[in-house]
Amino acid sequence: MSSEGSAVSSRLAVVTARQDAGLNICLLTLQAEDGAPLPPATPGAHIDVHLPDGRSRQYSLLSSAPYRIAIKALRDGRGASQWLYDNLAVDDLVRISAPRNNFSLREGATDTVLLAGGIGVTALLCMYDTLSAIGRTVSLHYWARSQEETFLHAELSGKEGIHIHSCGGRATSMAAVMAGHGPAADLYCCGPERMLTEFAILTRDRDPQRVHIERFEADSTGAFPQTDHGFTVKLARTGTTIAVSKNQSILEALIQAGINLEYSCEEGLCGACEARVIEGDPLHRDSVRTPLEHNKRRTIMLCVSRVRSSDTLVLDL
């Protein structure tokens, strides 16, 4: 999913329900903080969910009234989804963008085939619901690693036109599914990169107007906002003030100023340079602790943390 249209306004939403929806998957219902209706959205739309550390991540809307999104925690535990999965509970506030749609549905199609891999199914379920409701021919083929990792397995497996496939070697292939649908069919695919590549190859000879891909952005720590700026760090114990430039870590600036510090990895992976914050609004970027934990403990990792505004950060050093 692309991040175009970054000027879209954001608002606070409240989590009104949280439900387990498969292994490491939760289904969240969001409503506007003030109870007003959230902006309408078309099938295939997604919203940005903002994390307290400045990162954001896109999630497909399963429904738009109310907004429902599914979050799958990825195994490496470093990503934004993991954080949201671990931290969001009912009554929590979360900042979201208005919906955007780069994957819109041709509701007039006579035959629609939805091809989903893993959590990519969330981009297609709203389409399935919409087409089913208006009586169009639609089939949803969903490849999942195992039953327990299947999103809403019990609910989906009973529905007409939904086929859940395992990913094993003898499972139904995407090619076999597509062979059953002629050139008039509209094909939608959302899933991991490997599946999208295979889909692109299999649809080479089809009408591009009838082939729709939703790219599922990798969940990584690489999605930091590119809004870095310089700021000032004040060391409370000595009263020293040190300027941290835009291209420099706090750690680098302190070392340059001759401050003797413990550190090791310089990438936010080890925890050696943890320091206590006395004042300021830090931006956390390490994988040692979650931003929530950091905020509770009032700590940062000097090697990767920054400051949210251009304010001064006062450290217990």
Partner: peptide, 14 residues
């Protein structure tokens, strides 16, 4: 800790 290289899984060692 500037000697050798540490990871968060080595927190106790650190």
């Amino acid at each position: 800790l500037r000697q050798e290289l540490h990871h968060r899984s080595d927190l106790l060692g650190q």
